[in-house]
Amino acid sequence: MSASSDDNIEIEYTVQENESIPIAIAQAVSSFHQCDPLDLPPLYNSIEADTLEKLANPPDAASGSKSNIQIEFVFAECHITVENNDRIVLRPTD
Score class of each variant (00 low, 15 high):
Ser65Cys: 05
Ile9Tyr: 13
Ala62Val: 11
Glu10Lys: 12
Ala3Met: 09
Asn18Cys: 13
Pro59Arg: 04
Leu43Gln: 02
Ser30Trp: 05
Val29Thr: 05
Asn18Val: 11
Ser65Gly: 03
Ala24Met: 11
Pro59Ser: 14
Ser4Phe: 10
Ile21Arg: 00
Ile69Lys: 05
Ser5Asn: 12
Ser20Gly: 15
Pro58Arg: 00
Pro59Tyr: 09
Ala56Pro: 05
Ile9Leu: 14
Glu48His: 08
Gln16Phe: 07
Ala62Tyr: 13
Glu10Tyr: 10
Glu48Pro: 01
Ala3Asp: 12
Asn45Pro: 02
Ser65Lys: 07
Asp7His: 10
Leu38Cys: 06
Gln34Asn: 10
Leu52His: 00
Asp7Glu: 15
Asp50Gln: 07
Lys66Leu: 09
Gln34Phe: 12
Glu48Asp: 15
Leu38Pro: 02
Asp39Pro: 02
Ala28Cys: 15
Lys54Ala: 14
Asp36Glu: 13
Cys35Val: 15
Ala28Lys: 03
Thr14Met: 14
Tyr44Lys: 01
His33Ile: 05
Ile25Trp: 02
Asn68Cys: 15
Asp7Asn: 12
Asn18Met: 15
Lys66Met: 11
Asn45Leu: 12
Leu40Ser: 02
Asp7Gln: 08
Ile25Lys: 01
Val15Ile: 15
Asp7Phe: 13
Cys35Ser: 10
Ile69Trp: 04
Asp60Val: 07
Phe32Arg: 06
Leu43Pro: 00
Ala62Leu: 15
Gln70Ile: 06
Ala26Lys: 06
Leu52Lys: 02
Ser46Asn: 03
Phe32Tyr: 13
Ile21Ala: 02
